[in-house]
Design a protein around this nucleic acid. Structure first.
Length: 569
RNA sequence: GGGCUCGUGGCUUAGCCUGGAUAUAGCGCUGGGCUUCUAACCCAGACGUCGGGGGUUCAAAUCCCUUCGAGCCCGCCA
C-alpha cells in the first residue's frame, strides 16, 4: 500500500515542479519517511542549489502548484520550511483496510520475481549446531521467507561438507573412540571429535592417518567413503532435528562429494588453468587473483593431487549458477576473504557470482566458539533453557490452563524469543552471548509481538460470543477516525514496503523492527479505543474489522520472521 | 605488520551506503495506571562529547583524512 502512496506522491510532486518551471531527476526528489508526515520530500534543497534560490521559497512555490487528483491516496500536501510534507488521505486508509481483509495471509506479497538459490547454515557435520551457527540459520531462513513474500521463487540449500579434513578427523574419531549412543547423535559425534583433536595435538604422527583417509576418499575407496558417510549422517540427523525445532527449513542438502564424483571438480580446475592465471607452487596449483585485489594466491589443488573445500565450492557454485537467476550465500565473517576469492575466480571463468551476506561472530565471554576445542554452547542447550524459562512464565501468568497448553506456548514463546533476539540486530555487529539476556522475556521482543496477536485473537473470539458480528459483512472504515486507529492502519500499510526494502537490501532486521512497531501501534489502539464496548454498532463493526486486520498483519509479520503466532498465551 | 567490520545514554540497539526539521527504540532507573476486550500491557520522567582529533559543506552520527579501542581474516583447514 505504502509503495502506491509513494508512487502517487512522486507523480504529484513531479507535476508541480514542472508547472513552476523547474527540472529535476526522479532520483533527486529525495523522498523519506519522517515523524513530521507520512512522506517527506527534500527536493527543495536540491532545486535550491540547482537554481541558486532559497529552498523555503521553492518549497512553498511548489506546494502552491500541487494538484491532488480525485481518489488519490495523498490527502494533503504542505510545506514546512524547505520540506514538502505529504499526508495520506482517507482513500489510502480505507483501501488499506479493504486490501488486508481481501488478501489476508497474502497481504504484503509482491509480484512474481526471479528465481533465487539461497545457501545458509552449511555447518560442518562434526558436532551439533551452536549459538554462532544459528545466527546463520536464522538470518538465512528469515531472508528466504522475506524473499518469498517479496515474490521470488526461492530454493534453500545446505551444503554438506562430507569429505574435508575435519570430516576425516570425525571418521577417524569414530573408529578410535566409542560413540555414546544414549546422546543425541550430533552431540555424540562432537564428543569423539573433540577427543580426537586433542589426541592429534599430542601425537602429530597421527596426521598421516588423516591424510591417508582423505586420499582414499578422493580416489573413491568404498570402505572409507562408507565410514565418512556414517559419521556425516549421524551429525546431520542431529542438526536437522535442531533446525526443525528452530522452524528453519531447507529444500535440499547437497553433498560436497558429488562434485568430485561427477568430475565437476576436475573440469573446473581445467577451466581455471585455461585462463592462464594458475601456476605451480611446491607441487600445488594456485590461482593468481592479484588483478582482483587479492595479494594471496588461492590454492585449488594440493601437492598430493587432492581437491580442497574451495575447489569443490567452486564446482558447487557453477552448478548453482545454472539453476537460478541469483545466488545468495549466508556466511560467517571468517569467510570474508575466501568468499571474495571464490567470487573473483568464478568471475574469471565467466560464471555468475553469488551475492554474499556476511554476519559477524557470536562469541562467549571467554572467547570465540570452537567445536574442535569443545568450547561452545549448543543450540539445543539454549533452546531447552529458553523454553524452560518460558514455561515458568506461562505457569505464573496462566496457572489455570492445561499442561499441554503451557508446554505449547512455552515452545512458541521461547523459540520466538531466540529467533527475534538474533534477527533484530544487524548482521555486521559482533555479539557476545549472555545467558541472562538470552533468558530475559521482559524486554520488547518476540513475546511482545506474539502477545499483541493473542490479544487481537481474544477480542475477535469474545466478539463472536458476546455480540452479533458478521466478520464477512460490509464495514465502513471511514468510521476509524481516532489517532490510534489511523496510526495503526498506516503502520499496517507499511508492510509491503518493509518487505520490499528487506528483500532488496537483504536486511531482515528491518522486518524485526517493523513487527515490534506494529505491535506497539496495536497495543496503543487497544489501550485507548474500546472495541466490543463501542456503543455504536457500525463503529464496533469497523473496529472489529480493524482488529482482524491487525491480527492478519501481525501474523504475516511473525510468519515471515519464522515465529509462531499463538491465538492465546 | 596488512586487509575487512564494528564503536551511538549504565547496558543492548536503529539511523550511516543515498548529508538536511527536536538522534531511534528497548532493558534498567524514577513516578503513575487493572470493578472495562489478556497488565507478557499502557502513560509520564531522568539519562547522549553519536570513541577522540582534524577536514569538506549553507548543513556531518552520516562523506574524507587521522588516531584509539574491539572482533574477524591473512593455512596445501573449512
Amino acid at each position: 500500500m505504502f509503495l502506491e502512496l509513494k508512487a502517487q506522491a512522486i507523480s504529484i510532486l513531479k507535476d508541480a515542479i514542472r508547472k513552476v518551471g523547474f527540472e529535476i531527476e526522479d532520483s533527486e526528489l529525495y523522498f523519506e519517511t519522517s515523524s513530521h508526515a507520512d512522506l517527506t520530500s527534500r527536493a527543495a534543497f536540491r532545486l535550491a542549489s540547482l537554481y541558486k534560490k532559497n529552498p523555503k521559497e521553492i518549497a512553498s512555490r511548489i506546494v502552491s502548484a500541487i494538484e491532488i487528483p480525485d481518489g488519490s491516496y495523498v490527502g494533503e500536501v504542505n510545506a514546512s520550511g524547505p520540506y514538502i510534507n505529504f499526508r495520506a488521505g482517507r482513500h489510502y486508509l480505507n483501501r488499506t483496510v479493504a486490501a488486508v481483509l481481501e488478501e489476508k495471509e497474502k497481504f504484503g506479497c509482491g509480484a512474481p520475481k526471479d528465481r533465487i538459490l539461497l545457501e545458509h547454515t552449511s555447518a560442518n557435520p562434526n558436532g551439533p549446531l551452536h549459538v554462532g551457527h544459528i545466527r546463520n540459520s536464522i538470518l538465512g531462513d528469515t531472508l528466504a521467507r522475506i524473499l518469498k513474500r517479496a515474490g521470488h521463487d526461492v530454493e534453500v540449500q545446505y551444503y554438506v561438507n562430507d569429505m574435508g579434513r575435519q570430516i576425516a578427523v570425525v571418521s577417524w574419531a569414530c573408529e578410535r573412540f566409542e560413540l555414546d549412543l544414549s546422546r543425541k547423535s550430533d552431540a555424540a559425534i562432537a564428543d569423539v571429535y573433540i577427543k580426537a583433536n586433542s589426541e592429534l595435538d599430542k601425537n602429530p604422527e597421527y596426521v598421516k592417518e588423516i591424510d591417508a583417509l582423505m586420499e582414499n576418499v578422493e580416489v573413491g575407496d568404498i570402505r572409507t567413503i562408507e565410514r565418512f558417510d556414517k559419521a556425516v549422517f549421524m551429525a546431520i540427523a542431529g542438526i536437522k532435528e535442531t533446525l526443525l525445532r528452530l522452524n528453519v527449513v531447507h529444500d535440499k542438502f547437497v553433498n560436497e562429494s558429488r562434485f568430485l564424483k561427477s568430475g565437476a571438480v576436475h573440469d573446473i580446475v581445467e577451466r581455471i588453468k585455461a585462463t592462464g592465471r594458475t601456476k605451480t607452487d611446491k607441487g600445488a596449483i594456485v590461482v593468481d587473483l592479484s588483478d582482483y585485489g587479492f595479494e594471496k594466491t588461492l590454492v585449488i589443488q594440493r601437492s598430493n593431487g587432492t581437491s580442497l573445500y574451495t575447489t569443490r565450492d567452486l564446482a558447487y557454485h557453477e552448478w548453482k549458477a545454472g539453476q537460478a537467476d541469483r545466488i545468495i550465500d549466508v556466511f560467517g565473517a571468517d569467510h570474508k576473504l575466501i568468499s571474495g576469492q571464490l567470487r573473483a575466480t568464478l568471475n574469471a571463468i565467466g560464471i555468475k557470482e553469488p551475492e554474499v551476506v556476511i554476519f559477524e561472530f557470536v562469541s562467549l565471554p571467554e572467547g570465540s566458539m570452537s567445536t574442535r576445542r569443545g568450547q561452545f554452547i549448543s543450540a539445543d542447550d539454549l533452546f531447552d533453557r529458553v523454553t524452560e524459562a518460558a514455561l515458568e512464565q506461562v505457569e505464573t501468568r496462566r496457572p489455570e490452563t492445561a499442561y499441554e497448553f503451557k508446554k505449547q506456548i512455552a515452545e512458541m514463546v521461547g523459540m520466538g524469543a531466540v529467533r527475534y533476539d538474533i534477527v533484530r540486530v544487524s548482521p555486521e555487529k559482533s555479539t557476545v552471548f549472555n545467558w541472562k539476556e538470552a533468558l530475559d522475556f521482559e524486554k520488547q521482543g518476540a513475546p511482545y509481538i506474539q502477545y499483541s496477536h493473542a490479544r487481537a485473537c481474544s477480542i475477535l473470539e469474545k466478539a463472536k460470543e458476546e455480540v452479533t458480528w458478521n466478520s464477512s459483512g460490509k464495514i465502513d472504515s471511514s468510521l476509524l477516525i481516532e489517532d490510534s486507529e489511523i496510526d495503526l492502519v498506516k503502520k499496517m500499510a507499511m508492510f509491503d514496503s518493509i518487505i520490499d526494502l528487506a528483500a532488496r537490501e537483504l536486511k531482515p532486521h528491518v522486518l524485526a523492527i517493523y513487527a515490534r512497531e506494529l505491535a506497539d501501534a496495536f497495543n496503543q489502539f487497544y489501550r485507548f479505543v474500546p472495541v466490543i464496548a463501542s456503543e455504536d454498532e457500525e463503529v464496533r463493526a469497523a473496529r472489529l474489522a480493524l482488529v482482524e486486520c491487525a491480527r492478519i498483519v501481525l501474523a504475516n509479520s511473525l510468519d515471515t520472521l519464522g515465529i509462531e503466532a499463538p491465538e492465546s498465551m
